[in-house]
């Protein structure tokens, strides 16, 4: 049985601009992913707990409030605390190249800025899963 890619799509922080998150969620559904959509105003703790319970491959955050330098590292720490070392943390928003670089150094994946296509995001997720979850179709670790 083909293993479904499971992605948590969350709006972190307080901003309510969910157009991007919803478009990405819809595109991922149409790419055959199972998307767990948590909705708005998620705290890092809520995101990490949902990532554990839903056993997702990927956590994708949308942050447009400028709080990305606070929220991404916090979510990453909480994920690691809960043993989610093999789960990709990615996302998008209004994030400068410089900030993207700094976050990637911490272990966050590729981040997508304004104008990114859903196609590019989906390819990236597929590629990451193919690389990191290859021998894992239904095998426990």
């Amino acid at each position: 049985m083909a293993r479904k890619i499971r992605v948590l799509v969350a709006k972190a922080g307080l901003d309510g601009h969910d157009r991007g998150a919803k478009v990405v969620a819809s595109a991922m559904r149409d790419a055959g992913f199972e998307v767990i959509y948590t909705g708005l105003h998620q705290t890092p703790e809520m995101i990490a707990q949902a990532a554990v319970q839903e056993d997702v491959d990927v956590v994708a955050l949308s942050i447009l409030s400028g709080a990305h330098m606070t929220l991404f590292p916090r979510v990453l720490d909480l994920m690691r605390e809960r043993g989610l070392n093999d789960v990709l943390l990615t996302g998008g928003g209004i994030i400068s190249k410089e900030d993207m670089g700094a976050l990637q150094k911490l272990g966050v994946g590729t981040l997508f800025g304004p104008g990114a296509t859903t196609g590019a995001i989906i390819d990236y997720v597929r590629g990451w899963v193919a690389e990191h979850r290859a021998g894992e179709v239904g095998t426990a670790k």
Partner: peptide
């Protein structure tokens, strides 16, 4: 497409940090 959007957690946010509630979509 074989894909799905699982959106029920949206309305269960108040349990989102309670470790005595396990929600699975």
């Amino acid at each position: 497409t074989g894909g799905a959007i699982l959106g029920d957690r949206v309305r269960m946010n108040e349990h989102a940090t309670d470790d005595k509630v396990f929600i699975r979509s």
